[in-house]
């Protein structure tokens, strides 16, 4: 699925330098995974729903960044202040307009609604943008930096630090602002939050909006080193689910550590087993964690 990575010839024996480069690469990818997973885990923690449309929303954000670059000549990193608010508004509206109305208060319904939304978005993209895989060219796409002998692509380094910075901002918003306090209150006890005068429906929609805003940021960091096509979200969504389950649903720290862990497993697994089979490592982890520790490594709530 990751066609941008070079097909490594299978190493005769494990060279520590190659392994080191592979781990570093995994960490940079893992930071972006963590950012995507943070949005998912926030939505789960507050709303107790799994947003199946998360991958499709990321795909839309990637197209947004792509067209801003192609039509307006905006650098993906310059698109950040456009994409983040745009995705936030889209998320807020989607929750208020569709998800809250259609759920009839049942969680299973939300599961199916978000599945329906993802089918719609994905195929609308197929209809309008065709199935071509699109990439953008920037001055820094092919440049690399040397870190202790390992060559890491510059866009991946930017993505690493950008994802970490976005995560820090998110944690500050949740931890220090009054909105964050309201979000945490609704996550813990929605009836109680309603009783003390919190507008719960508004907070739910805000959480959904912030969750998608994370995707807006992730898309800006991803595209210079990645590609976009209508199916691109599918690969990410299972990975994001794995991270969220691994870290414990609703746990921010868990999502961060889980993101790095999965990034490294994918990178090293691909090195050892080859590209196609390497992905299995992720799903095997996913299934094992789901079966034996569904509360996750860091989650308290089952």
């Amino acid at each position: 699925m990751k066609s941008d990575e070079k097909a490594y010839p299978p190493p005769a024996m494990l060279d520590p330098a190659i392994l080191f480069a592979s781990v570093l690469n995994g960490l940079t990818t893992g930071a972006v995974y963590a950012l995507i997973a943070l949005g998912l885990t926030l939505i789960y923690g507050v709303l107790h729903i799994i947003n199946f449309a998360h991958g499709a929303a990321l795909m839309m954000a990637l197209y947004g960044v792509y067209f801003l670059h192609e039509k307006l000549g905006l650098d993906p990193y310059v698109s950040l202040p456009i994409m983040v608010p745009a995705m936030f508004v889209a998320g807020y509206a989607l929750y208020r307009g569709v998800i809250a109305r259609a759920s009839h208060g049942k969680d299973e319904n939300i599961l199916l609604i978000t599945l329906g939304l993802s089918i719609m978005l994905e195929n609308a993209a197929l209809y309008f943008f065709k199935s071509d895989t699109l990439t953008i060219d920037t001055a820094y796409t092919l440049s690399t930096v040397n870190i202790f002998g390992a060559m890491i692509a510059v866009p991946k380094m930017v993505a690493f630090f950008g994802a970490l910075a976005t995560t820090a901002v998110l944690l500050l918003v949740i931890g220090k602002t009054s909105l964050g306090r309201a979000i945490r209150a609704c996550a813990k006890e929605r009836q109680g939050a309603r009783l003390v005068g919190i507008n719960v429906d508004h907070v739910f929609a805000m959480s959904f909006g912030i969750g998608l805003a994370c995707l807006g940021a992730a898309a800006c960091f991803l595209l210079p080193a990645y590609y976009v096509n209508p199916q691109v979200g599918n690969g990410f969504v299972l990975i994001a689910f794995t991270i969220v389950v691994l870290g414990g649903m609703g746990s921010f720290v868990g999502a961060l550590i889980g993101g790095f862990l999965i990034g490294v497993v994918e990178s090293v697994g691909g090195l050892l087993l080859g590209e196609s089979l390497g992905q299995i490592g992720i799903f095997v982890i996913f299934i094992i964690v789901l079966l034996f520790r569904p509360q996750g490594l860091f989650g308290a709530r089952a």
Binding site: V98, H104, G116, I119, M120, N123, A124, A125, L126, Y127
Partner: peptide, 16 residues
């Protein structure tokens, strides 16, 4: 491609 599945997805949301 895609057009009929958009309608299926919409149908799923509307039915629910």
């Amino acid at each position: 491609p895609g057009a009929s599945l958009v309608i299926y997805g919409a149908l799923l949301v509307l039915i629910i």
